[in-house]
């Protein structure tokens, strides 16, 4: 069963279509990675999915029900991990969880039990009575997540939950996400870190300019690019003439330059490796050359024409 489904969703801000006929589905128990460059519409999609903003057209279903009205019952089943840290800095970690847990209807012994479990789950049990003001960035992020899972949501939506934290906290969060999935939670995970999606996602959605331009498992997406090969070339001197010459070779789809390095995406089997090597030698000499199969990062680059990591928040 689809836990969440969007059909033909359009959302405009003025004349700009932030979501442009978006269709997507999240199946029960999945971890879906949502990737997209700056301004792709990821956060808007998340807000629309949670019923936080009204869409102009299309239908959204959560747990089989159409979004309408205040949807308080549906909201009880969702946890939203916001991009910004949205915990209360003047309350302790325990008080933060008590506040949010109370709103989700937990009380008494059950609330106490859930607070203890959740603090342990995010590794903050020793900091339970401390103010987040004294926390590191990673600890604040973990508390931010804790406040969203205190009620054991069926669908957890995470909007860039690992921005600006140390590798240890990142690993902790990624492991926690996998544990939540193993307990039956469905997760929509937005990030700028490709390796996070590769590590945890069972399926990937790639967005650009308000469209979902690709979706499927990582293997499926990479397989679609198997008819291409990636050639990384480092030369003594990169000239415009050399780039033009490579671009004019049959089967070459794209040439990206970064300093003295070139990355060339070419049709597989076009025999361009030798030709490129010859051109580079004539242009002044080759330092190194490497041919490879495409990765998820290449899928993203091919589909959007943009690097993911360079981008900032959506």
């Amino acid at each position: 069963m689809a836990v969440a489904a969007m059909s033909d969703i359009v959302k405009r801000y003025g004349d700009h279509r932030v979501l442009d006929h978006v269709d997507m589905e999240i199946g029960e128990g999945e971890i879906v990675g949502l990737l997209g460059p700056n301004g792709a519409g990821k956060t808007t999609l998340i807000h629309a999915l949670c019923g936080l903003i009204r869409v102009d057209s299309g239908t959204i279903k959560l747990f089989g029900e159409h979004l309408s009205g205040t949807m308080l019952d549906i909201k009880r089943k969702i946890g939203l991990v916001t991009q910004e840290i949205t915990v209360f800095e003047d309350l302790t970690a325990r008080e933060n969880l008590a506040f949010f847990g109370g709103i989700y209807g937990l009380k008494g012994a059950e609330l106490k039990r859930r607070i203890a479990e959740t603090l342990e789950f995010v590794g903050l049990e020793k900091q339970a009575n401390k103010s987040p003001k004294k926390f590191s960035g990673g600890m604040k992020r973990r508390l931010n997540i804790a406040c969203s899972i205190i009620h054991d949501p069926k669908l957890l939506i995470m909007d860039e939950p690992t921005v600006g934290i140390d590798p240890q906290s990142r690993n902790h969060i990624l492991e926690s996400v996998q544990t939540l999935q193993s307990r039956g939670t469905t997760i929509l995970y937005t990030t700028h870190y490709m390796e996070e999606v590769q590590a945890i996602a069972s399926r990937v959605l790639i967005m650009d300019q308000g469209h979902v331009i690709a979706q499927g498992s990582i293997e499926e997406l990479v397989r679609n690019l198997h008819h291409e090969e990636k050639i990384k070339l480092e030369v003594m001197e990169v000239t415009d003439d050399l780039i033009r010459a490579i671009e004019q070779l049959g089967g070459v789809k794209r040439v990206n330059r970064s300093g003295s390095k070139l990355q060339i995406i070419s049709q597989a089997g076009a025999g361009n490796l030798d030709r490129i090597l010859s051109l580079a030698k004539r242009a002044g000499g080759v330092i190194s050359i490497h041919a490879d199969q495409p990765s998820l990062e290449d899928v993203f680059l091919t589909l959007t024409g943009k690097q993911l990591r360079d981008t900032k928040e959506d």
């Binding site: 807000h47 949670c50 308080l72 909201k75 910004e84 949010f100 209807g105």
Partner: peptide, 13 residues
Amino acid sequence: QTRKWRTYSLPIH
């Protein structure tokens, strides 16, 4: 501002 989306996602009017 800061906590807007968190608050609006809560099951409360």
